[in-house]
Every structure is written in C-alpha cells, then in structure tokens.
C-alpha cells in the first residue's frame, strides 16, 4: 500500500498538484496491517498526519475490514467513497457495514494468488480514475517512476493491472468529491477529559505477555498459509519448530509438527527451512475457500 500511495502521489504531482503521501507502519512484520495516505491540493499543504476525514478509502485486502487494528472504517463519512478489493458485491459491503456513502468493489486479485502482488498497482490505478483529476498518462508515468528500479518486467506487469483498473473505474471517474475543512466557527468541541490518577496496579503498562500472545489472533495477518504434507514430513520436528519465530509450530506426542494457524503469521520461514520440502505455501484465501468458509 505504501507503493500504491506513492504511485498515486506521484501521478497527482506530475499533474500539477501539491502532494503529501505517507505510510503508517505498526508492527514491522510481513502480514501486519499497513495503511498509507495521500493528500493533494492546488495549494501548499499544511495539514499533516493521518487523514481524519478521507474523501476516498481503498481497502486492498477485505479480510482487514473486521480488524480493529486496521481501522478501515475510521473516518468514513456520508460522502466518502469506499473501494474494496473484493469478490463480494458492493451492496454486500454496504449492508454488512451499514454504510451510507458510495461503495465500489475492485475484483483485482480474484482467486489467483499470483495477482496479490499487483493489488497495490491496481488500487492506485483505480484511485487515479476515481479522483477524476489524474490523467491516464500521469498514472502510467508514475508507475514507471516508482517501479522503474525494479526492472522493465515488473513495470510492464504493474502497468497492465493499474491501467486495467483505471479503465474499469472510468465509468465512476470523478465520483470522489473534495471534502471541506472543519470551520473554526461552529465546530464540534473535543470531549476533553481530566485524566484521573490511578493506582500503579491499574496504570502500570503491564500486560501478561503469554496471555496477550494467545488472545491476539495474529493468524489473521497471514496472506500465505504453510501447510504440512504429512506424507512427506519426516518428523525432524526440531527444525521447523525451532525456526518458527512465533512459536506457532508445536510437536505432538508422536513427534509430528503441527501449525497453530490462529497465531502463524505466514512468514514462510518453515517453508524455506523444511529439509524434505514437505511444507507447501497456499494462498490464505484459497485455503479458506477449500475449508468452505470465509477467511
């Protein structure tokens, strides 16, 4: 998403806008939720930080919608356009989340996990079209500029997806409206409170580590699922269980390694380390579909 924000930012900049783009990282781990934002204006930009009242929100991975840490719905107003990379219909999301604003979906990555890596480019291309003020040419140049160092092949593949998304959204071009800033007369007063003193047994930032690790279902971060093929597993359990950085591979009484999917973040280290190559990587969406449920 950082790259997507940079593609959109550069495209706006090339088309003469003042621009600010930035990612916001939390946990520095693969699969952790990440968001990025872009501001654009004809005037120099003084505003900073996370956009509190976005005009357009793009969700590249619809499994993030229910995650509080991802904060997908924060700031959605009646006029905010929400674009979700999803196989579901816009009406489904509108209903599920009780949204008043316009909802669009971009079925960009389909069931093909190979497409996941182009989700950013597709989202950037779609966003450029929805804004209605960014040219197709600037979008193309922005991708060449941002991805150029990665080689011609990467540029070509991303261009294809981004421009396809741009064209797909052409019918909605300009549906994103520029919101107004909060006026200094008649604003809603912040609900400031006087923070009370609380005893250190309440106020010390101590949370039991083990319990916290268990309660936080970091398995939701996973985009790829390691699956052990027990017909090939030779039970050299010490290897995969030791290498797992999250202690998410346990070993049962028979010496058989078992992956705790509630906490496996999908880092793929076990896949890389497994001596008999018995651990396969499967797209999370495909794995969940095979189980017959939503991820």
């Amino acid at each position: 998403m950082k790259t997507a924000s940079r593609i959109l930012g550069t495209a706006l900049f090339l088309d003469g806008f003042e621009v600010q783009d930035a990612p916001r990282y939390g946990a520095e781990r693969r699969g952790a939720p990440l968001f990025a934002y872009v501001r654009a204006s004809r005037q120099p930009i003084n505003e900073r930080g996370v956009i509190r009242r976005p005009d357009l929100v793009i969700v590249a991975d619809d499994t993030l919608v229910p995650m509080p840490a991802a904060g997908v719905m924060a700031g959605l107003g009646d006029f905010t356009v929400l674009l979700v990379n999803s196989q579901e219909a816009p009406s489904v999301w509108k209903d599920r989340l009780n949204l008043k604003g316009p909802v669009l979906t971009l079925p960009a990555t389909a069931e093909d996990r190979q497409e996941l890596r182009f989700a950013g480019a597709a989202c950037a291309g779609a966003a450029a079209a929805l804004l209605g003020v960014v040219s197709r040419g600037a979008t193309e140049r922005a991708i060449r500029e941002e991805l150029g160092p990665l080689g011609a092949e990467v540029v070509a593949a991303n261009l294809e997806r981004a421009l396809a998304a741009f064209d797909l959204m052409a019918g909605h071009a300009g549906c994103v409206q520029e919101g107004t800033e909060v006026s200094a007369s008649g604003y809603r007063h912040p609900e400031w409170i006087d923070l009370p003193f609380e005893d250190a047994r309440v106020a010390a930032p101590a949370i039991h580590g083990a319990a916290t690790s268990v309660e936080v279902k970091t398995g939701l971060w996973r985009t790829m699922r390691p699956v052990i093929d027990y017909s090939r597993c030779n039970r050299c359990w010490w290897v995969c269980s030791s290498f797992c950085p999250d202690s998410a591979i346990g070993v049962n009484a028979e010496g058989r390694p078992q992956i705790d999917y509630e906490h496996c973040k999908g880092c793929m280290i076990c896949v890389a380390q497994c001596p008999p190559h018995a651990i396969e990587a499967i797209a999370e969406r495909a794995a969940a579909a095979a189980e017959g449920g939503r991820p």
Binding site: P190, I193, V202, H208, T212
Partner: peptide
C-alpha cells in the same frame, strides 16, 4: 491540560478490561 478525549480513555479501558480478564 493533556489533550485527551473521552474516546481515548474508552480505548484504554477496553485494553485494561482485557488485561484484567487475562490476569
């Protein structure tokens, strides 16, 4: 004054409630 809103305290109370249940 610390710039701090009721909503923010609510978020902290939620974390404290989870920690309490865990303990």
């Amino acid at each position: 004054r610390l710039l701090y809103t009721l909503d923010e305290l609510r978020e902290v109370r939620k974390l404290q409630a989870i920690a309490h249940v865990e303990r």
